[in-house]
């Protein structure tokens, strides 16, 4: 027995597991356990009896489908818009013109603000008597009597507003990721592009963007996952259940409804959202995995 413990083979095999044991224990305790608890809890009613009621409630609720659609809408459009804006800004700052450092600094300010502050800034901004209308009036764009009711629009208009506000905060974050990627690129690879007949646009399309692919994927996935989780700004500007999205519904049921029954429904919501986020993550792994596969095929 002792012989076995001290054998070289045993040590070589066991040591790695011993080294990662603390991490595994940590995950089991603080991640796996609550996740399982939550999952199990979503199938139980107030009296702890097994039930599908929580899910049935959600799937019968028209608000859920609205929330699902709104979330998808926000994810697709906000991520696209934010990516394009961030990429453009990163390209500009990467030129290193005079004052690009200051520009970068200013652009980063919204990133540092907590979502609550962002919500406060813009809900007071978009209010009919808010600062945005005052500002527009001051500039002479609108009449005093013709204030724009920003917040009175329909579903899509509201979402566009949310997308703009979210972009305001998130574009700098995305830009920094892309900028870091750009600055890590081999300058000579681009220069070779110019030497061998490339215009600025060809070099961007055929060299810069392909070389940036890993950075772009990372930025997009991080954004997709966090776009699914937008809720606080929505609640601060519109309150609960006016512009339903998945996470806002979750918070509503768990936090606002103060009833055990709704709390269970909130837990079911959290399982559903986890599944969506996981799907996004799996797509991410698939996409990056595809890069790996491409490498293997050519080997």
């Amino acid at each position: 027995m002792f012989k076995l413990l001290y054998s070289r083979e045993f040590r070589q095999k066991a040591v790695p597991y011993l080294l990662i044991a603390p991490v595994l224990i940590y995950y089991a305790l603080f991640w796996l356990y609550p996740v399982i608890q939550c999952f199990a809890g979503s199938f139980r009613d107030v009296n702890n009896k097994l039930t599908l009621y929580n899910y049935a409630f959600i799937f019968k609720d028209p608000t859920f489908y609205k929330a699902l659609f709104n979330t998808a809408f926000i994810v697709v459009f906000s991520v696209t818009l934010e990516f394009l804006a961030a990429f453009g800004l990163a390209l500009i700052i990467n030129i290193k013109f005079k004052g690009s450092g200051i520009f970068l600094f200013i652009a980063m300010i919204p990133m540092a603000l907590p979502a609550v502050a962002v919500g406060a800034i813009w809900s007071s901004g978009f209010a009919t008597y808010g600062w945005l209308n005052s500002f527009l009036y001051y500039l002479g764009f609108i009449e005093k009597t013709a204030k724009i009711p920003f917040l009175a629009g329909g579903n899509v208009a509201s979402m566009i507003l949310i997308i703009i506000i979210d972009a305001w905060q998130v574009v700098p974050f995305m830009m920094i990721i892309l900028l870091a990627g750009m600055q890590g690129l081999d300058e000579e690879a681009k220069e070779a592009g110019y030497i061998f007949g490339g215009t600025k646009f060809t070099v961007l399309r055929k060299i810069t963007i392909p070389l940036l692919k890993p950075t772009i994927t990372t930025a997009l996935i991080l954004r997709i996952i966090s776009a699914i989780q937008i809720w606080l700004i929505i609640v601060m500007i519109y309150g609960f259940q006016r512009l339903p999205v998945l996470l806002e519904e979750l918070v509503y049921y768990v936090d606002e409804s103060h009833s055990m029954e709704f709390f269970r429904i909130g837990i079911a919501y959290s399982v559903i959202i986890s599944i969506f986020v996981s799907i996004a993550a799996v797509i991410y792994l698939k996409v990056t995995g595809a890069f790996g596969k491409e490498a293997e095929e050519t080997a």
Binding site: D186, E188, A189, E191, A192, G193, Y194, I195, F196, G197, G198, T199, K206, I207, P210, L211, K213, T298
Partner: peptide, 30 residues
């Protein structure tokens, strides 16, 4: 004139071959 209008070609010190293209595509680029 920009580089592409000069009829020059260049070999860089650190090769600067494009990692995302095959050898063939590297050579055929121009």
């Amino acid at each position: 004139a920009p580089p592409r209008k000069r009829d020059v070609s260049m070999v860089f010190q650190n090769y600067a071959v494009w990692p995302h293209m095959t050898v063939y595509d590297n050579i055929a680029f121009a």
